[in-house]
Amino acid sequence: MTAPESGNAPTEWICGKCGEPLRLSRVNVSYLGSGYPVDLLMCTKCKRALVPPEMALGKMLEVERLLEDK
């Protein structure tokens, strides 16, 4: 998966439901009461965001372990 471009320019991903192109937006990600704002590609219409695998398997996993005290 290619990395999202910076800025608000439309990217190659579009929302299958709404037909809108996904744009980079600030979204809150949280777990067990701790949150942090990150930039994710998001459909401006239905507000659903795309979590890329590098983030899910990288930073998110580390944060989950940290917060669970694993």
Partner: peptide
């Protein structure tokens, strides 16, 4: 420690890993 964790969450997102 909760504050440290919160800070570390931010650092992980900034830098990539613990």
């Amino acid at each position: 420690t909760a504050l440290l964790k919160q800070w570390m969450v931010g650092q992980i997102f900034r830098l990539g890993s613990i």
